[in-house]
């Protein structure tokens, strides 16, 4: 498969779309918009998995797609939105780094990901190489989002977008066992639950979701 062939092009576009939404996540200021963008990214990852299921003719990937869609595009955003409403968080997200610099850093990270992936995968199929570069970029951008957001919800979304990148890499590799995918999906769900609990606790005890506030309470007990 290479350029000009429809299966490849569509897989490529979906991967590019996931990456684009990583940038949208970095770009948005309002927390509801961030959640929407995350939902869109989850849906795109699910479509990418389904499309790989079609081209690779693997039924397991459809299951992955369904789980990804249900969890990332529907359930988690709904929960997050409910949380935002409950905690009355309708104001903007405070970024530790400005939008412009974090976008520039994002482009730099994508360049880095490509520089790392291309030499490391010489001889591998062109499709896999570029998909790997895309996925690594999404992972790095997720990490960038985690460090540039002060708000705990922003950080959680960064983490889950990071996992989207991992999933994107996993579905690109033909013959990935289903168990691995299921376990990562479960892991993410657990992570989301833990994060939600922490956020609620933080809110109750510190009256803030700014993780910077935790700094002052290091070493405390009880």
């Amino acid at each position: 498969m290479t350029y000009g062939q429809l299966p490849y092009d569509i897989a490529h576009m979906l991967g590019g779309g996931v990456l684009l939404f990583s940038f949208v996540l970095l770009y948005q200021r309002r927390i509801t918009a961030v959640i929407n963008a995350f939902a869109m990214q989850g849906a795109l990852v699910a479509f990418a998995a389904a499309w790989q299921g079609v081209t690779q003719d693997a039924a397991g990937l459809f299951l992955t797609a369904a789980i990804a869609f249900g969890a990332k595009a529907v359930a988690i955003p709904l929960v997050l939105r409910a949380m935002v409403r409950r905690l009355d968080l309708e104001r903007g997200v405070e970024t530790a780094l400005g939008i412009g610099p974090s976008m520039i850093a994002g482009v730099g990270l994508v360049g880095l990901a490509i520089l790392v992936v291309l030499p490391a995968t010489t001889g591998v199929h062109a499709l896999a190489r570029e998909d790997l570069a895309l996925s690594l970029s999404v992972v790095l951008l997720g990490m960038l989002m985690m460090i540039t957001r002060r708000n705990v919800i922003g950080q959680v979304i960064g983490l889950m977008s990071l996992e989207n990148g991992l999933l994107l890499a996993a579905i690109g590799a033909a013959g990935m066992p289903l168990v691995v995918e299921l376990s990562t999906a479960a892991l993410v769900l657990v992570l989301a639950i833990v994060a939600a609990v922490i956020a609620l606790e933080m809110r109750e005890r510190l009256q803030s979701l700014d993780t910077h506030a935790l700094q002052d309470h290091r070493g405390e007990q009880g």
Binding site: T2, Y3, I99, M103, I114, R129, E130
Partner: peptide, 26 residues
């Protein structure tokens, strides 16, 4: 607005970067 257009600028750069990859592969 500069954030909006700056994002467009960076997306343009990103588009070029991906083209470098694919032309390098071809």
């Amino acid at each position: 607005v500069p954030e909006f257009l700056g994002a467009a600028l960076l997306l343009g750069l990103l588009a070029a970067v991906f083209l470098f990859v694919s032309t390098g592969l071809a």
